[in-house]
């Protein structure tokens, strides 16, 4: 690989990881100031863990992420199946648009629009509305991930199963689903992370008692730099890194079985 390419990679990854490195390093900085190194300390982690509202917000975020990721995985998988298997059906173009549009749409539009819907329906805003919103936005991502895997599956595998006497339901449960499972898991993890990470939409559609972690962090950031946030971010980064590496391993692994027939 040429020197230019190597240089591009190093600079690129340095750029990507610079803020993360800053956060991690300074989460252990005894001093609250960024430019002063006060020695290694874990006191901010202590402050973090005893920060009631922050911990409560973290719990809310986890619950919302779990619920919305589950819904998004089901919806997204159904959508992916429909787009790859159902051929032409009435409204297919509109359906494709509805599935893919939320992925690129600016979040402020989605957030406002959903809030107006909930208000119009008279729904109380809270955890349920955030779950609905997150599920709606993540469905498209799951559909793309699962759809890519379904497209890569050899269609003869399903034919062989049918030839051996399996009805459509059995074909789906014993052949299609197991072979698509890694993509479903990756899609779930993607939806989970998107939910954990979301600030804008949650701000619009949440209600009293339903403060998510990003919402809490944002309000603290507005008040000024807070070293406790470094600790929170490092922990978050640690958790998400483990999850992301697992998902990457799964996506990498499922590249092989579909071709080995």
């Amino acid at each position: 690989m040429s020197a230019i390419s190597k240089g591009a990679l190093i600079l690129g990854f340095a750029f990507l990881y610079a803020p993360i490195a800053v956060l991690v390093v300074y989460s252990f900085n005894a001093s609250a100031l960024v430019t002063v190194w006060g020695g290694f300390s874990t006191r901010w982690y202590g402050v973090l863990l005893s920060d009631g509202p922050l911990m409560a917000a973290a719990l809310v975020s986890l619950r919302v992420a779990l619920a919305s990721a589950l819904i998004a995985t089901v919806m997204g998988t159904l959508a992916a199946l429909a787009l790859t298997r159902s051929g032409r059906f009435p409204g297919r173009a509109l359906f494709t648009g509805l599935v893919h549009a939320p992925m690129v749409m600016p979040e402020v539009i989605a957030g406002l629009a959903l809030l107006l819907l909930f208000v119009g329906l008279g729904l109380d805003r809270g955890i349920a509305t955030i779950v609905i919103a997150h599920a709606t936005l993540a469905t498209g991502f799951v559909a793309v991930v699962v759809g890519a895997r379904l497209k890569g599956l050899d269609p003869s595998l399903e034919e062989a199963a049918r030839d051996l006497g399996a009805g459509p339901v059995r074909v789906f449960l014993t052949v299609t689903l197991p072979l698509a499972a890694p993509a479903l898991t990756a899609g779930f993890l993607l939806a989970f992370t998107l939910s954990l990470d979301d600030l804008v939409v949650a701000s619009f559609v949440s209600g009293p008692g339903a403060t998510t972690l990003p919402m809490r962090l944002y309000s603290q950031i507005r008040l000024g730099v807070n070293p406790e946030i470094n600790a929170a971010s490092t922990l978050l980064i640690g958790v998400v890194t483990v999850v992301a590496l697992t998902a990457s391993r799964l996506m990498g692994r499922d590249a092989r079985p579909g071709q080995g027939a």
């Binding site: 990679l9 800053v22 960024v34 990470d197 971010s233 978050l236 980064i237 998400v240 992301a244």
Partner: peptide, 30 residues
Amino acid sequence: VLVALVIVPFWTSFLIRIYAWIAILKPEGL
């Protein structure tokens, strides 16, 4: 591995990574 390395920051909090840039870019920053 490179792909995973690109994806990992994407999956860590967007809000927090932008917040980190404040620490880097502010006049008293890094």
